[in-house]
């Protein structure tokens, strides 16, 4: 799963961003208040002034595989369309009551014809009406520069133009508000800046999960 996410991230970086010569990199390392590596943290970098914008913000997808959202956290640029392909052989009922985008995909199989467009920045929590434990996040940002930490707590944002940027860190369970951890950095060409974060996270309540097909009774 981690490999998959990494691949997706790499694909994102390589396919949709124009290659730049003399680009800078930002390398982040995120741990929780206990010092444990924190997966699913999103680093996003915003340039002051108008940033260069790709024409095709693109179409993205969150799969439902084995009654889980894959990836768990998807970062998209504002205006992106996201498909919700159902890879299971049962129906799902994906919904969000989050302010940036409230929507509902009533029980369906396969991939709905229309994607869902996320035109407001912010956190969209995804759930499934018939599987309480299914939880996913779509983090809508207004910048093409972002990355999601892997299970080592690390992430790298590549091909960054030089300039002054504000780095934001977000995590689904972080206690502090998003803006409180903004960091200003100046990027020079070929530089690889390192950002280390230690953030407090909430304990996540467990949600009782139904037994897997053919598996043990829950």
């Amino acid at each position: 799963m981690t490999v998959q996410r990494l691949l997706v991230a790499l694909a994102t970086l390589t396919c949709f961003l124009p290659p730049q010569v003399l680009a800078a990199n930002v390398q982040v390392k995120v741990v929780d208040h206990n010092g444990e590596p924190l997966e699913h943290a999103v680093i996003s970098l915003t340039y002051s002034g108008s940033a260069a914008r790709a024409n095709n913000i693109g179409q993205r997808a969150i799969d439902q595989i084995d009654k889980e959202f894959v990836p768990h956290v998807l970062v998209v640029e504002k205006g992106a369309s996201v498909f919700f392909p159902n890879k299971d052989d049962i129906r799902h009922h994906v919904y969000s009551f989050s302010k940036p985008k409230e929507f509902e995909l009533p029980l369906y199989k396969g991939t709905p014809a229309k994607p869902v467009v996320f035109d407001k920045t912010g956190v969209v929590k995804l759930g499934c009406n018939i599987h309480d434990w299914m939880l996913g996040y779509i983090y809508v940002v207004d910048t093409p520069y972002f990355a999601v930490t892997d299970d080592t707590g690390g992430a790298v944002v590549t091909n960054l133009p030089a300039g002054n940027v504000i780095a934001h860190l977000w995590h689904p369970r972080m206690k502090a508000a998003r803006d409180t951890n903004a960091k200003k950095i100046t990027l020079t060409p070929t530089q690889t800046a390192s950002l280390d974060y230690q953030i407090k996270v909430r304990k996540e309540f467990r949600v009782r999960r139904a037994p897997r097909a053919g598996g043990r009774k829950y």
Binding site: F97, K125, G127, D132, M134, L135, F205
Partner: peptide, 8 residues
């Protein structure tokens, strides 16, 4: 907790 799907 009221889960939507996280506690709300």
């Amino acid at each position: 907790p009221l889960l939507t799907p996280t506690p709300d």
